[in-house]
Design a protein around this nucleic acid. Structure first.
Lengths: 351, 351
DNA sequence: CCCCTCTTCTGGATCGATTCAGTCTGGATC
DNA sequence: GATCCAGACTGAATCGATCCAGAAGAGGGG
């Protein structure tokens, strides 16, 4: 058993307070005594104040919780999520705070428990879907938090982009190039949907908020040029992986009239789409593809996409948690997005 | 202020123990009373037992610390480190444990404090260099840990590969193709070395253990075909980024006789090398390049490399921490590596 | 010489739970 | 009717520190 602060105090012959001060408030005791305490402590193998006990007493942990509303290990396979994390890590470094990554069980009850049991001072929630339950649990604990939900709830601290407008901007680019027969590719379009084309009566039916906003943005642009929602092909690629994107696009083979462009809700899916089209060869190669996020691979792949600042999103979220703005209205940060046109999108092939 | 367990106990009119049991040991009280307790608790806004207080009393936190002996935010930019983390996350999910990512300040004293203040049950240490100080601090706390150091210290739990043999295998491949005038490219070859060619009297002088082992492995293979250490060009690329790799390789322009092959200590550096050579054009394009790790981009870039199982490394490390093998000798796991030959390496161009 | 201030150090209360050895109750057993 | 027992619940001790009001002693000023 490691010695405790009490043991050190007894060994040196001072009170526990004094030993505590030797570690945490050096100005409260003479340099000499302090050295003597620290020396005996070292000699006894005392590793310094127990972090847990200290946190309990101080009412402060020194860690921020990071919640992914998807499987934690999946989060690392998503390049954009990793960039978000990078940003958080940067801010945490600056503030000397640790990051507690909390895996959330799939069942809501288990997820709630996980959130209740996390020893943290606040949360950054990377919203990849249905998070209201989680947020309520956090509110219940009375801890501060920052979200990245598709749409902020008034009063919540939030960092995000205008999903709908951003999506609209790529779609307008394609519409401007003349595309009218297009496919929209998203993860989780309808819960439990199979891979491939899908009938969705209305955008509002899409459960996943981010996917819904982006699809709506795509649809806005095409509606403006006279292409109504029912005329759009909706592709589901459960899993948001490159392979899923490829599989979904391969399913287009079944269609009599393939689209001239595929608009994906993420770069990962778009890259998958490019994989599938390149493998298909022939006229398929001419199909335009666009993504969303502008991850590193998008540049090398020549993917046209919407750039959103990933690291900054994470950084801002963490900063918002660490230094809450005095003015609550400054608690929502809208980040800019840019359309990045590369080679994966082009004019309609002449027919 | 949120109510405490005590407040709930008083409200219901039972002892604190009973309320505690209502949450943690449902079999210790009647279903009826339990429901009554839980109901009043909910009604009072009691969020359940405080995680910190619980950890203190139980002597168990439910989190494992993850330490990167480099800046935490850099860790996320290294694809191999991210795969390692993915593996850890997977195991953590399975065990219902959280991950505490602890940023380590650059100064050893600060790093020590950070390790001492981490509220965790054990550590996974991703060794990217000099870690002995860190490990000693952990030992001082008496916490279990698993390392991935270049060479395991007897008795420590460890997961890793045979760095030297693995490196030797790629080098033998190149030597077999006829290459004799080669450059070895590493991050952190000598501390504070500038970008570019470097004089290193002996491999043993390389401070960073992993880099040292890999360079030694490269050298082994060339020594076997009669090329001695001093004849090898050593390139330093501080930072282990793609850009650094490119810059280091560009520095080769200054050499009268450029090498016919570049052996990098990581895929990231190798990809940088390819960038630089592709941009240089001309005969430079014919220079063979090899990497190490086999990250995802290596495949698309056609990079010849040594594959090491990244996720599995993380997974095994975490498992070793969660379920220590009864037999201490099973505490060191040597993972296999494979040479993956792609298009970035080829025979010597005829002169 | 007394009063006052500073510095240095002390003790006990406290943070919010869990634990464990009991106590009490009602019913089964012989 | 005495004994025993399982089940339900209690209370004090404990986890390992930090905090704060205050005591003791040293030095300074009048």
């Amino acid at each position: 058993m490691k010695p405790t602060l009490r043991a050190v105090a007894e060994a040196v012959g001072v009170s526990r307070s004094t030993v505590s001060n030797a570690y945490s408030r050096p100005d409260q005791l003479s340099t000499e005594l302090r050295r003597r305490i620290l020396d005996t402590a070292r000699q006894m193998g005392y590793p310094g104040p127990d972090p847990t006990a200290r946190s309990l007493r101080r009412g402060f942990v020194g860690a921020v919780g990071v919640l992914f509303t998807s499987r934690l290990s999946y989060a690392f396979t998503d390049p954009f999520a990793v960039r978000f994390l990078t940003g958080i890590a940067e801010a945490a470094e600056r503030h000397g705070s640790s990051l507690l990554l909390v895996p959330l069980p799939a069942d809501p009850a288990g997820a709630g428990k996980a959130v209740e049991n996390a020893a943290v001072d606040g949360f950054c929630v990377y919203c990849a879907g249905d998070e209201e339950g989680i947020l309520d649990t956090i509110r219940g604990r009375g801890l501060p938090f920052v979200t990245t939900a598709a749409r902020p709830r008034a009063g919540d601290r939030w960092v995000g982009i205008d999903e709908r407008a951003a999506a609209r901007s790529v779609a307008e680019h394609l519409a401007g190039l003349g595309h009218r027969r297009v496919a929209l590719l998203g993860d989780d379009v309808l819960s439990d949907a199979a891979t491939g084309p899908l009938r969705v009566a209305d955008v509002a039916d899409v459960p996943h908020p981010t996917t819904r906003e982006r699809l709506a943005g795509f649809a806005d642009a095409f509606a403006a040029v006279g292409v109504a929602w029912p005329e759009l092909t909706i592709l589901s690629a459960p899993g948001n992986t490159r392979a899923a994107g490829a599989a979904a696009v391969r399913a287009l083979d079944a269609l009599a009239e393939p689209p001239t462009a595929v608009l994906a809700c993420s770069d990962v899916l778009a890259l998958g789409a490019l994989d599938a089209l390149a493998a298909a060869g022939g006229p398929r190669r001419a199909i335009s593809v666009t993504g969303f996020d502008d991850i590193a691979e998008a540049a090398t792949a020549g993917l046209t996409t919407v750039r959103q600042p990933g690291e900054e999103k994470g950084r801002s979220a963490a900063e918002l948690l660490f230094d809450p703005p005095a003015d609550a209205s400054a608690g929502q940060i809208l980040l800019p997005t840019t359309l990045v046109v590369r080679t994966s999108s082009g004019p309609l092939p002449r027919s």
